[in-house]
Design a protein around this nucleic acid. Structure first.
Length: 812
RNA sequence: GGGCCUGUGGUCUAGUCGGUUAUGACGUCGCCUUCACACGGCGGAGGUCGCCAGUUCGAAUCUGGCCGGGCCCACCA
């Protein structure tokens, strides 16, 4: 019987209440502050389970820190910048960015993303993010953020860290934009390895193997390995290209793998990343072949206007007709594609803006070491990435929606004109420079590229702390305390943020970084829309409650992935139920024990068994605290869960029932001792669980502990006390073991736990210790009599006590 | 190919700076309708702690090798 816990109405009620009371409000000027660089989610419709997963991890820590007395600063933002949003908007409205004026498209993007953001925020609120929504910076494409991003550009430009250069760059012909190293994805593909014979000027021939015969118009050399005896006499000679009848040098380079194909490779600008290296190393000419739309230019001769795939088919046909194709082998290989659209990338020559950082690898590694990584091994990924950097950071994108460069070019001399810092934000397509060019010209061409998403996202700690806007605020808070994020974007977001902080402030952006894993589907696979295995967190919450979802989320070790299993949500729901019922039980029995009596209670008067309980609880406090301090929320959760269920409910509550129900047996003091312990013990457990399950714990707190404050979430975290009650600990452990043995006995003879035992006799070397909990053992095992070190009369059976030095006899 | 992580009863998982019968949950089986909770309690069955070798008095835990899974990075033209 009794009132049921209705998670739906309680959770909704509390969400309102927290907001109205401003429980999570950041209080300007109050110290100490714990600042969090909250990830701005990409605007893409709705919160997914992966979001619920990693943001809950962040919230566990924020709630813990708040209870530790910190003023938590965690402004929220949205990343509505870049291609992801463009695609989302194009799909949603059925429009194409390149088929309409930029201004109009931008307007649509802003409309759609604002709307989507509202919908998304509801998701984060519903899982119980303890965020002060009034201090969010909202979106990366907003005047304030554009201003800071442009300011960053100008400052780095002035520092000589930014340059514009024409270089071969990875290019997506589909999206029509330059790409950075991080935007690539591997795609497995079936293709053909074509062996083509070239004439050599020594009268012989040389064969090369290639998967990209269509790039022959851009061929500038043939390479062999310097030690390859087959080609000793070829190096330094010239090979003649079929069809194009052009001669190219045969050169040696030890990057050639003699065992692949024929051991000879033809080199084109630009087949892949390594080709660019060879161009520079061997001082070869650059032949531009591919246009920005992916078609071939006039260098391709009769293949002009075709794209790679088509040209490949045609050229192979033509080569076969000429009889220079020796053979074709099917190959299965991996190609680089653009991660957003899956299109194979090309390399083309374009002018782009770059941030120079290749010279800073050592410094960046050093910065990485100054940050505490949780878990520590995640730093290795950062190190590997920094060590593997090959290019400076290309920050320009030929897209439509994003942060514009604050740049114009002089129409006459081509010199770039950088906007004045006081005029920011600027849109060069709309605004004009206020000064003439040095050459005297007053005509300008606007830079119409926009910045790479990460050029802005990398500024989140600086944006959140009002960099370039409120110096005192910024200086007092930078670096931030924590960056929470998932492991997949260590090389994107964590890396670029560290870069920007270093370049601007010569500082780390945050002291700690906490890396979450991913939520996986029930079979341990990645969740993705295309697989159809996506789980909607809001429907999970609907069914089980936010607390249950968070309870599941808290069961993964930091940094590790977790398969979603519905049964785990059932476990969470059971936990909620158990908490509710145990709390009701506790409170039912505290009706004659007022808050005043509780306050006055002298702990010296505690029963030994209650001392045992509080001491065991004290250890749980210690473990939970240490776990949260090291961001290991799952250890904390496990510890408290096990303690609550098995120590508190299964044992402690059962042990004290008799004292409470039948005070005439052991006296009112023993009852008061139990009541004090129940009241205190439950409150401590609720607090330890509050960061994980904020709703149920606060609801119980409101109902039963109104004297303790406005909300459990702004109450004080339980203190760990010095170890004491060593003797009681031993006694309590023994009591549990003995009662366990008797329960086992009752179970083995098919009796209920309420079955009466006539007598218990315990043999021990330490009778004082056992007798201190003798009455508790008697109560919990429903025994009529208990004796210590008495010779067991006939009819007594010996049970295994499970404890060394203790013999147990019973009679029933 | 390089790096990191990981491999524990049917499933998920704790434990991994070595030490008595390897943790808990779900499932399963038996018992218990005990006055907080049957979304409960007690108990049982179920594990060669991926495989092999080594170090050690003793290894799930340390070392080496192998096999499997995941992620990140690089990549054969």
């Amino acid at each position: 019987m009794g009132e049921k816990y209705d998670f739906k109405s309680v959770e909704e009620k509390l969400l309102k209440e927290w907001e109205e009371k401003g429980i999570y409000r950041f209080k300007q000027g109050r110290k100490p502050v714990f600042s969090v660089d909250t990830p701005p989610p990409t605007v893409s419709g709705s919160m997914h389970l992966g979001h619920a997963y990693s943001y809950s991890h962040q919230d566990f820590i924020m709630r813990y820190k708040r209870m530790r007395g910190f003023n938590v600063f965690a402004p929220w933002g949205f990343d509505d910048n870049g291609l992801a949003t463009e695609r989302f908007v194009e799909k949603k409205l059925g429009i194409k960015a390149n088929k309409m004026p930029r201004g109009e498209f931008t307007k649509k993007c802003l409309e759609v993303s604002r709307e989507a953001e509202g919908e998304m925020i509801r998701g984060w609120k519903r899982i119980g993010m303890s965020v002060d929504w009034s201090i969010s910076y909202h979106h990366t494409v907003s005047p304030e953020v554009i201003k800071k991003s442009q300011l960053s550009f100008i400052e780095l430009y002035k520092k000589g860290r930014i340059y514009r250069k024409k270089m071969p760059i990875m290019w997506c012909p589909e999206c029509g934009t330059a790409l950075a190293q991080v935007e690539l994805k591997d795609k497995e593909d079936d293709s053909e390895l074509v062996y083509i014979r070239f004439k050599v000027d020594n009268g012989s021939t040389i064969s090369i193997a290639t998967t990209r015969p269509e790039l022959m118009p851009a061929c500038v050399a043939v390479f062999v390995h310097p030690d390859d005896s087959r080609y000793k006499d070829f190096v330094g000679r010239k090979a003649s290209l079929p069809i194009f009848n052009r001669e190219v040098p045969i050169l040696a380079d030890d990057k050639v793998d003699p065992s692949f194909g024929t051991g000879a490779v033809y080199h084109c600008t630009f087949g892949d990343i390594d080709d660019i290296e060879w161009v520079i190393k061997h001082d070869l000419p650059i032949i531009e072949l591919v246009n920005k739309d992916g078609t071939f230019n006039k260098r391709a001769g009769r293949y002009e206007g075709m794209r790679s795939r088509e040209a490949r088919k045609e050229i192979v046909k033509d080569l076969e007709e000429l009889g220079v194709v020796e053979k074709k082998e099917p190959v299965h290989h991996v190609v680089n594609v653009h991660e957003r659209c899956g299109t194979e990338i090309e390399f083309i020559m374009t002018e782009q803006w770059y941030i120079k950082y290749l010279d800073l690898k050592e410094k960046l590694l050093e910065q990485g070491r100054k940050i505490k990584w949780h878990p520590a091994h995640m730093r290795v990924r950062y190190d590997n990435w920094v060590n593997g950097l090959k290019w400076d950071w290309c920050i320009s994108r030929q897209r439509f929606f994003g942060v514009p460069f604050p740049v114009w070019y002089c129409k006459k001399c081509g010199r770039p004109i950088i906007a004045d810092e006081d005029d920011l934000p600027v849109d060069p397509l709309v605004d004009k420079p206020r000064v003439k060019c040095e050459c005297g010209s007053e005509e300008f061409i606007a830079e119409k590229d926009v910045m790479d998403t990460w050029a802005t996202s990398s500024l989140t700690p600086m944006i959140a702390l009002k960099w370039g806007q409120d110096d005192d605020f910024f200086k007092g808070m930078f670096p931030m305390d924590l960056r929470p994020q998932a492991h997949d974007i260590i090389t994107f977001w964590a890396f670029t943020t560290i870069v920007k902080s270093y370049l601007h402030e010569k500082s780390i952006p945050w002291k700690n970084i906490m890396i979450s894993g991913h939520a996986l589907d029930p079979r341990g696979r990645k969740m993705s829309k295309s697989e159809g295995n996506v789980i909607n967190p809001l429907s999970v919450i609907d069914k089980y409650g936010a607390d249950a979802l968070r309870f599941w989320v808290a069961s993964s070790k930091l940094g590790e992935d977790l398969p979603f299993q519905e049964k785990d949500l059932v476990t969470g729901r059971k936990m909620i139920n158990k908490l509710w019922n145990a709390s009701r039980f506790v409170m039912m029995n505290l009706e004659d024990f007022s808050h005043e009596e509780y306050k006055k209670f002298n702990e010296e008067k505690l029963e030994p068994f209650d001392k045992w309980f509080l001491s065991t609880l004290n250890r749980a406090i210690k473990k939970a605290t240490e776990s949260f301090e090291s961001y290991e929320y799952s250890r904390a959760k496990l510890e408290v869960e096990n303690f609550f269920w098995h120590i508190f409910c299964d044992n402690y509550l059962e042990f004290v029932k008799s004292r409470i129900y039948n005070p005439e047996k052991r006296g009112v003091d023993a009852k008061r001792s139990a009541q004090y312990t129940l009241r205190r013990g439950l409150l401590v457990q609720l607090k330890l669980l509050a960061p994980i399950m904020p709703f149920i714990t606060d609801e119980i707190f409101h109902r039963y502990y109104p004297e303790e404050g406005e909300s459990i979430h702004v109450s004080e975290w339980p203190k760990y006390l010095e170890e004491r009650y060593a003797e009681e600990r031993e006694a309590g452990d023994a009591a549990l073991a003995i009662v366990g043995a008797i329960r086992r006995y009752k179970s083995s003879i098919g009796k209920s736990l309420g079955y009466e035992i006539k007598g218990i006799i315990i043999h021990t070397d330490n009778p004082d210790m056992i007798s201190s909990v003798g009455e508790d053992i008697k109560d919990a095992s429903r025994a009529v009599e208990i004796d210590i070190n008495k010779q067991p009369p006939a009819g007594f059976k010996e049970l295994a006590s499970g404890i060394e030095g203790i013999k147990l006899f019973i009679y029933d």
